[in-house]
Design a protein around this nucleic acid. Sequence first.
DNA 1: GATATAAGTTTAATCATAAAACCAATAGAT
DNA 2: ATCTATTGGTTTTATGATTAAACTTATATC
Lengths: 150, 150
Amino acid sequence: MVARKSLKGDHCPSARALDVIGDWWSLMIVRDAFDGMTRFSEFQKSLGIARNILAERLRTLVEHGILAAEPVAAGGTRLEYRLTAMGKDLFPVMVALRQFGERHLFAPQEPHSRLIDRAAGQPVRLDIRAQDGRAVGPDDTLIVKVPEPG
Amino acid sequence: MVARKSLKGDHCPSARALDVIGDWWSLMIVRDAFDGMTRFSEFQKSLGIARNILAERLRTLVEHGILAAEPVAAGGTRLEYRLTAMGKDLFPVMVALRQFGERHLFAPQEPHSRLIDRAAGQPVRLDIRAQDGRAVGPDDTLIVKVPEPG
DNA sequence: GATATAAGTTTAATCATAAAACCAATAGAT
DNA sequence: ATCTATTGGTTTTATGATTAAACTTATATC
């Protein structure tokens, strides 16, 4: 691949986010973590990912503070990977991806997994709103760039 | 890479979404498209992406129906790439990524670009709610898997 | 104490990406 | 109308990320 371009210095928050979780597997691992998985072999079986890649992805997710690794038993070497508070802040990203997939990537009658509200057993909504509560879409918004220094 | 595993057949909508826009560049191109860019050279200058890779990404985004390519001038060969209605449905994904980046990937005083509501000039909110309007987080929800056929 | 499973690491082959050179078509200047 | 620069790519070559499989060590199970 010749050293994937890093977006770490970019002033765009989306770019930095993609720099951290924009690779092929990280968000799939995070999805499974939201689904309750914690162990190496669970992720491996669920995703069919190569073990070395899974090990590296888990390592970088831990480095970035999205997952925390804790020994399963005191004194043991086996680890459990759990979402941190920061990791749980990826929830809206997962919900947004899911909604997009549901809307556009399934045939009309094709079955798919669903994200439901535990209390009501009903699907959840995702809304983007202005401060005053108006729903806003892409054409109602604007990206304001940061001024170049100098 | 040895043939990246395709998630096309997965029953999880997030997985299918990542199969379409989960690679390194697609969402960055979509971000720029939301920002008003339409031309090959604009994307290329903005992202610093290799030209062959940009050409392929644009092609697959068009194939998937996220971008539409139209000639700039009738009879000409130069193309303009614009978000389709489907492409604009990626807006919540972009907003969610941006919010995550803003919250966790910038130093306290570090400047970053902002997404603002055109009308009020204020940042937008993203909420996940149950049908009855309650705000819900990851621990309030559950993924319901589709039954295996057979 | 023997066997199986978990959680990786190492190794080798393959394929995607990046960078740069190349090329045709268009737009602008003369 | 012709020369030149820019646009929008394609081709070529190298590099390295990803994969699969074999290997290793530690932990559970019988």
